[in-house]
Amino acid sequence: MPGPEPPYGTAIHDAIAHGDLAEMKRVAREAEVFLATHGDISAALETLRIEIYRLEHGRER
């Protein structure tokens, strides 16, 4: 299966996180910056924060 191979050595530089959670966090950061200056997406951002929490904690035992 193609993919990263991290043996002992320097960590894989430029490796990035994937998946919905990584994108949601990125968009949340963008929205927080936006909110600081505008304020008309606060409801949507609050919902996004809830979804991030659910994804981060809800499916892991």
Binding site: M1, G3, P4, P6, P7, A15, I16, A22
Partner: peptide
């Protein structure tokens, strides 16, 4: 980005984080 070395695992509930950094097609082989 927290990266798990090869002696950390395997196939518990966080495997998708360790191998593909949430790219769920990746797992230890």
């Amino acid at each position: 980005l927290l990266i798990a070395g090869n002696n950390i695992g395997y196939f518990g509930p966080y495997e998708h984080l360790w191998r593909g950094y949430a790219d769920e097609s990746q797992h230890w082989t």
